[in-house]
Amino acid sequence: MTTRKLFVTILGMACAVSAHGADQRDAQSVVGKFRSARPQAADLAIYQLDWMPTLKAAREKAAREVRPIFLVVVRNSFGDLCSGHC
């Protein structure tokens, strides 16, 4: 009986270790996919620019800071070029 209990205990521990190892492999796989999909610095370069939500706000900031304005107008479209919605 004692031997059988010991065997069951060892078997249970082995399963637990195996399950934990499988969980770690799953986590590592997900982390790997995350790292490959995560935007790189070059992908986010456009967010380094100084965006303003309206031309009115851009003009106020431009006058205050003596800077030019770059205006993009998109017709036949609903979206937001700043955030990337098209």
Binding site: D50, M52, A57, K61, I69, V73, V74, C82
Partner: peptide, 8 residues
């Protein structure tokens, strides 16, 4: 530049 965009 100060960047801004508008959609219509």
């Amino acid at each position: 530049f100060i960047i801004t965009a508008a959609h219509s």
